[in-house]
Computed example of a mutant assay.
Amino acid sequence: MSARTLISPGRYVQGRGALSRLGEYLAQLGSAPLVVADDVVWGFAGHDVEASLRAADLPVRREGFGGMPTAGEVDRLVSVIRAWEADVVLAVGGGSTIDAVKAAGFLAGTRWATCPTVASTDAPCSALSVIYTEDGGFSEYRFFPRNPDLVLVDSQVVANAPAEFLVAGVGDALATWLEARATAQSGSATMAGGAPTVAGTALAQLSWDVLWDNAVAAVDAVRDHQVTPAVERVIEANTLLSGLGFESGGLAAAHAVHNGLTAVAATHGLAHGQKVNLGSLTQLVLEGAPRSDIREFVEFTTQLGLPTTLTETGLRTDDPDTLRTVADAATAPGETIHAMPFEVRSEDVFAALVSVERLARRIRADAKLPEPVPHQAHGS
Rank of each mutant, 00 (worst) to 15 (best):
G136N: 13
G269Q: 08
S120K: 05
A103M: 08
N214P: 13
L26A: 13
A175I: 10
T336K: 00
A3P: 10
T110G: 08
E312F: 04
S96H: 14
R291T: 14
L315F: 02
A377I: 08
S207D: 10
N259M: 07
V36Q: 01
S280Q: 05
R82Q: 15
P69M: 03
D172N: 12
D213Q: 15
I363D: 04
V157K: 00
H338E: 07
V276N: 02
I363P: 04
L77R: 03
G95L: 11
G250T: 09
G243D: 06
A55N: 12
D209G: 09
R358Q: 12
H268F: 12
V118Y: 01
P196Y: 04
D57I: 07
W112Q: 03
W208E: 11
S20V: 08
I7C: 07
T5G: 03
G334S: 06
V41E: 00
A182Q: 12
K275G: 03
A289G: 11
A332F: 06
L270Q: 10
L53A: 00
G109R: 12
L304D: 07
W84C: 15
S248V: 04
T322W: 04
M1P: 14
V153D: 02
T301Q: 08
G200D: 02
L53V: 05
G288W: 13
F143C: 05
L270W: 00
G305T: 01
N160K: 07
A108R: 08
T70D: 05
G137S: 15
A252H: 07
G64K: 08
L240S: 04
V89E: 00
T322M: 04
I98P: 03
L26F: 11
P148F: 01
L128T: 01
C125Y: 06
R4A: 14
Q303D: 06
A180L: 08
G30L: 14
T70Q: 03
L58S: 06
D319C: 03
M340Q: 14
A192P: 06
Q156E: 08
A339S: 14
A265Y: 01
T317E: 05
S96N: 14
I294A: 00
G15K: 00
F342W: 15
A163C: 11
N259I: 07
